[in-house]
């Protein structure tokens, strides 16, 4: 499969076949998850209705971190195996990750105001998440600033691989430092510390967000492969004219 996808034309064929199914599945799962989160899940005994913010905040946050790890992994594959689509996959994932990070920061802030009494504190979790957003912006800026794609991929790869160190810092910040942000309640020893009435919609939304992100990344990858083809054709045309 790995080598099979090394051919951009094969990838385009596979993507065209998978895209409609993946998009439909994402719409169904996310739609059901949002319905459960907004209309079925009960209000929390402490947080009240604001617990519903968690149904978008938690999936957005976990995916924002997951996508950055995916980008670093893709660039590592690009560096080691010279896989022709690895850089394109990482580049395609960046805007999705950046938007999810922004959603995480914004919804976290909207949850923090009624629950903590403040929109923002510079605690370890919030600050490291903000650093992740800056890393995404820096990564995207590299691709925009460097015109030659292979050079841009190399520099962006370094940004992704160096920046990935921030992901475990985000994850363990609530354990390493005394933070206002609560410790992990989903991925922890002894299983999730969340009641099934809240956990079920949360998991549906996490699956829905992941499918939506995958569908968007696939379409962005297709766009990237086609835009590289356009670039080659334009250069060939210039060469022919010269």
């Amino acid at each position: 499969m790995f080598n099979y996808l090394a051919n951009p034309t094969r990838f385009l064929k596979l993507q065209a076949a998978v895209q409609p199914w993946l998009t439909t599945l994402a719409v169904i799962v996310l739609g059901y998850g949002l319905y459960l989160g907004l209309f079925v899940a009960p209000p929390d005994y402490q947080q009240g209705e604001t617990v519903r913010i968690m149904f978008i905040h938690v999936p957005a946050s976990s995916l924002a971190m997951g996508i950055y790890v995916f980008m670093a992994f893709a660039h590592a594959i690009g560096f080691i195996f010279r896989h022709p689509l690895a850089d394109a996959a990482a580049k395609a994932a960046a805007p999705v990750g950046a938007v999810l990070t922004l959603i995480s920061l914004a919804t976290g802030s909207l949850w923090g105001k009624p629950m903590w009494g403040t929109w923002w504190v510079w605690d370890a979790r919030l600050t490291s998440m903000f650093v992740l957003f800056l890393l995404y912006l820096g990564y995207i800026a590299v691709w925009q600033a460097v015109e030659e794609p292979h050079r841009a991929a190399r520099i962006a790869g370094i940004v992704a691989l160096v920046g990935v160190i921030n992901v475990p810092i985000i994850k363990f910040s609530v354990e390493w430092w005394n933070t206002l942000h609560q410790p992990a309640s989903l991925l922890k020893k002894g299983g999730p510390a969340i009641d099934s009435a809240i956990l079920t919609p949360l998991l549906w939304n996490m699956a829905g967000f992941a499918l939506m992100a995958a569908a968007l990344v696939l379409l962005l990858m297709r766009t990237e492969v086609l835009s590289r083809r356009v670039r080659q054709m334009e250069m060939a045309q210039v060469g022919r004219a010269g």
Binding site: L34, L38, F39, P43, G48, E49, T50, R52, I53, I56, H57, A60, V99, L102, I103, A106, T107, L110, W111, K113, P114, M212
Partner: peptide
């Protein structure tokens, strides 16, 4: 969801922000 509940505006704003960004 009780749209008249305390802090419901924060919930609506969160979903609106996510909807607009996505």
């Amino acid at each position: 969801m009780d749209f008249a509940a305390r802090h419901a505006g924060f919930v609506i704003a969160s979903y609106a922000v996510a909807f607009v960004l996505v």
